[in-house]
Amino acid sequence: MGDWEGVRLHVVTGKGGTGKTTVASALALALAGGGRKVLLAEVEERQGLAQLFDVAPLTYAERRIAPASGGGEVYGLAIDAREAMYEYLAMFYRLGRAGRALDRVGFVDFATTIAPGLRDVLLTGKTYEAARRKDARGELVYDAVVLDAPPTGRITRFLDVNTSVSSLARVGPIHRQANSITTLVHSPLTAVHVVALLEEMPVQETVDAVAELRAAKIPLGAVIVNQVREAHLAGRERTAARSGKLDRDMIAEGLKAAALPFSNVLVDQLCTEAAGHARRLESERRARQELAALDRPMYTLPRVPGGIDPTAVYEFAETLTEQGAS
């Protein structure tokens, strides 16, 4: 039993560079643990998921991309606005010839790239459809859908499609579609998780996004703190390091005991690194306080100095599960 029992749509957002694709993937694997089936979707046409899992580029057709623990499965999908538009026209209007005529005059371009909000309705609409899809026996096809969503700066507008679209399309099927999406997005079936780093800009954007989502009455999920450094210094040593007052003789003796070649250059380097590390830990402590004040479940993922590969994503999934994400 995790923190998100009953949530069907997990939206993962974060400032650019915070690792939201990695976190969304790890969350999908965590939720798929124990034999469940989870859809992981991206909407930004970057093929971030394929890169991360080291598989062939994803398409508009859902396909299994990774096994999870206990026989679980993660499916991948790259939602493309143009494909969604064709599917939409075919589904609601059985448009053959007229659909092509629309394409010729540039309507599909208009709807998928220019018309304010329509693109977002198409993208979220596909997610909505997948989250509610049932098989022949009337059972839900996916236990959960995880969306690698646009960054924090655009997330509220992206999810709150109704506000942007209903002022434009006041009647008609797009209006109706926007309404059903709005209902799902504002219901307890949805949770928006925000990925942050313990740095000034990502924290500020997280705080801003949380405020915006709260104002739009969109249910918040967890704050997931990514790339957290291991603390190598504590207490008095940390204080001394910050003010450049580490005992150099003691360090030199330690190097001797460690059978390492002693040099003043090395001791200088160690002291400089320690000072930087101590200052960074202090600013991380303040950043963490600001995030804690948001009063959301907080999960922590470590920094991987060597870079992220598929193995690291599985490790992250386990770490998230241990902290209650699934």
Partner: peptide, 19 residues
């Protein structure tokens, strides 16, 4: 590792880990 096993020079060991 050598310092950690010997249980001495905790500061230098931490600095080496950081380095």
């Amino acid at each position: 590792e050598r310092l950690e096993e010997a249980g001495e020079h905790h500061l230098t060991a931490s600095l080496l880990r950081l380095h």
